[in-house]
């Protein structure tokens, strides 16, 4: 296990370094002079020179990269050019919306998918199974931001149960904050729950063919007991994989959904930064998102190895 962990940690570090190099190259090397780019075509040469100085663009590419990554490791992402505040401050503030939204949606999708997937698997070939398979097929096809608009139409415009958007912040209490995130989280969770339920169903059906399930049945356990005690535990591995992959889709989805509900999260920050050509903000947020995806997948890998010792050897 120690060897496995060491190898995984090494590959994690390499992935993080490689990802940061790619992002740095795209943002700071490809456009030529980022300072001139950020200030636009008719910029005063003196202003460009000043910004180049401020951004530390006068060193070599390597020294700039090391400076940037060194700062980022200490939580210093530089200054936002448009907001005139440290980028880390902006990110911290916006993550308080996007982070809870993604986690809320992940929890919802698990809470929906598990019972639904288990019911479908235990009623295989019966009407309940067909109904669930049809509903989840539809759930996968629905774009989450469109579903979000429909939710706004029904629950905010027609029923007036919730406001159509905006975020009051966490200062007003946990409940007020969660209430504002509920519709967005439902919209994000629906497609993910549909995928998860289908994966859980087929993974359960696979394990139900195994010999040990027959043994469990033979020693007198009911179908239900076998399913819950033996099949579910062993059918969890593929579900875990999908759950890890979903996190990156949830983050990306959260960024899009924030536009529907006018939530002041990372998505709003990054789209404003793109229109204002604030490359420093774009670079930092992209790095944060990519690092989050890599770290989640790393955690899932480790979780497998703990759940299934056989996987440690092959990787």
């Amino acid at each position: 296990m120690t060897r496995f962990l060491a190898m995984r940690l090494l590959s994690l570090t390499l992935s993080l370094v490689a990802a940061s190099v790619v992002i740095f190259a795209v943002i700071e090397v490809i456009p030529g002079d980022p300072a001139a780019y950020m200030l636009g075509l008719n910029a005063d040469p003196d202003a460009v020179a000043a910004l180049r100085d401020e951004l530390g663009l006068n060193g070599s590419v390597l020294s700039r990269y090391l400076h940037w990554i060194g700062g980022a490791l200490q939580g210093d992402f530089g200054q936002s050019y448009t907001y005139r505040v440290p980028v880390s401050e902006l990110i911290l503030q916006r993550t308080q919306v996007s982070g809870p939204l993604a986690i809320y949606a992940l929890l919802l999708s698990v809470l929906i998918a598990f019972p639904v997937g288990i019911i479908a698997a235990s009623r295989r070939g019966k009407p309940a199974d067909y109904g669930i398979m049809a509903a989840t097929q539809l759930g996968i096809a629905v774009p989450n931001f469109w579903f979000a608009m429909l939710l706004v139409l029904v629950f905010a415009v027609k029923l007036h149960w919730v406001s159509a958007g905006g975020f009051p912040g966490w200062d007003g209490g946990l409940f007020t904050g969660l209430k504002a995130l509920t519709l967005p989280a439902i919209a994000l969770a629906l497609p993910q729950a549909s995928i998860l339920a289908r994966v859980l169903r087929s993974s359960l059906l696979d394990t139900l063919h195994q010999d040990y399930i027959r043994t469990a049945r033979a020693k007198g356990l009911s179908r239900r007991q076998t399913l819950m005690r033996h099949a579910l535990r062993n059918g969890l591995i593929p579900v875990l994989t999908i759950l890890g992959l979903q996190f990156s889709f949830l983050l990306a989805g959260a960024i899009i959904i924030e536009n529907v509900f006018f939530l002041p999260g990372l998505g709003r920050l990054i789209f404003q930064a793109i229109t204002q050509r604030d490359l420093i903000v774009v670079e930092s947020v992209v790095m944060l998102l990519v690092f989050a995806v890599i770290l989640v997948n790393f955690t899932v890998d480790i979780a497998y190895a703990i759940a299934d010792p056989r996987l440690r050897r092959h990787r």
């Binding site: 983050l251 990519v290 997948n297």
Partner: peptide, 22 residues
């Protein structure tokens, strides 16, 4: 395979953001 893993860590939305920003 490691190159694959690396690209896989960039959701298409993030790739689009990077390309659009530049």
């Amino acid at each position: 395979m490691r190159g694959n893993d690396l690209v896989f860590a960039f959701p298409s939305l993030v790739i689009a953001i990077l390309i659009t920003a530049v």
